[in-house]
Simulated assay, not measured.
Amino acid sequence: MIYYITGGERSGKSSYAQNLALSFSQSPKYVATSRIWDEDHRKRIDRHIADRDERWTSNEEEKNLASVIKTNDVVVIDCVTLWLTNFYMDTNYDVEKSLELAKIEFNKLLNIEAQIIIISNEIGMGVHAQTKMGRKFTELQGWMNQHIAKHASKATMMVSGIPLTLK
């Protein structure tokens, strides 16, 4: 089952996803998709790690999400935005190719019997990107969010720490 959780920055997505995972299992997995870009980013990652206790098993996987998820796992994937960034950079900012590769990888998750909780960001609802590359990434994110939400069993949007049921 796919659970899709989206919202703005600092909207409560991660806390909500982690609590949901712990309601299903006392030994969930956490799949971190981020590359470490700089020291500030490392601090943000460290803060997320500190939020999880010994019940969690952490995996770092930049692109091949299905490779670390097994049958009956309860998994939080955090997050689509950083995962897409990896495709976007590795394809030299090719939106179509990035979307194609991300959809192929996401679709593999649909064949795994597991509780998969996917965190994403609604970046198109914020400030308009100032660069062409940023605007193209916003489009990529929006299209991938639609694809995930379409296939999710449940979809939730977080606003100011409050979950709003979309589906």
Rank of each mutant, 00 (worst) to 15 (best):
L109P: 00
I36A: 09
K63I: 05
D38M: 02
Q26H: 14
W37F: 14
T33E: 09
K29C: 08
D90S: 13
D40M: 13
K108D: 01
A50T: 10
L110N: 06
T57F: 03
D51P: 01
W56I: 09
T33C: 06
E62P: 02
V95D: 03
N107F: 01
W83R: 05
V95A: 10
E54N: 14
T85M: 12
V68N: 08
D51S: 15
I117L: 08
E39G: 03
L84P: 07
Q115I: 13
K70A: 15
E100C: 11
T57Y: 04
R35I: 06
H48M: 07
E122V: 06
N107A: 06
E96Q: 14
I104H: 09
L109D: 07
D90T: 06
S120G: 13
R52G: 06
V95F: 07
L101M: 13
K63C: 12
A114R: 05
D40S: 13
V68A: 11
I36K: 13
S34E: 08
A102E: 03
Y93T: 05
Q26D: 15
R42Y: 04
H48V: 05
E61K: 12
H41I: 12
Q115T: 15
K103G: 00
T71Y: 12
I69W: 01
S27R: 15
A32L: 11
E100Q: 15
R47V: 01
E39I: 12
F106L: 10
L110F: 00
I77N: 04
N72V: 05
P28A: 10
V74L: 06
K108Q: 13
L101H: 05
S67P: 03
I69Q: 02
V76M: 08
I45L: 12
H48E: 01
T81F: 08
A102R: 01
A66M: 05
N64D: 11
K63P: 04
L101T: 05
I104M: 09
A114H: 06
A32V: 00
E122I: 07
Q115F: 09
W37H: 12
I69D: 01
Q115A: 14
E61G: 09
N59T: 10
V76K: 08
A102D: 03
D73R: 07
H48D: 05
R35P: 00
D51M: 15
K29A: 07
N107T: 03
R47A: 10
N121I: 04
K43N: 12
S25V: 09
F87I: 00
V80Q: 04
D73Q: 10
V74Y: 03
D78P: 04
M89S: 13
E113I: 11
V80K: 04
D90R: 10
K70G: 11
E122Y: 13
V74E: 09
A66V: 07
I69F: 06
D73F: 11
V75M: 00
K43V: 00
R52K: 11
E54K: 15
N86C: 04
I118P: 03
S67V: 02
S27F: 08
D94F: 00
R44V: 07
N92E: 14
S27K: 15
A66N: 13
I36P: 02
A114I: 10
V68Q: 10
Q115W: 08
E62R: 11
F106N: 00
I118V: 12
S27Y: 08
R55I: 03
K108V: 00
I119K: 07
A50D: 14
L109T: 02
K108W: 00
I36D: 10
K63F: 05
E96P: 04
R52C: 11
F106G: 00
K108E: 08
I36Y: 02
S67K: 06
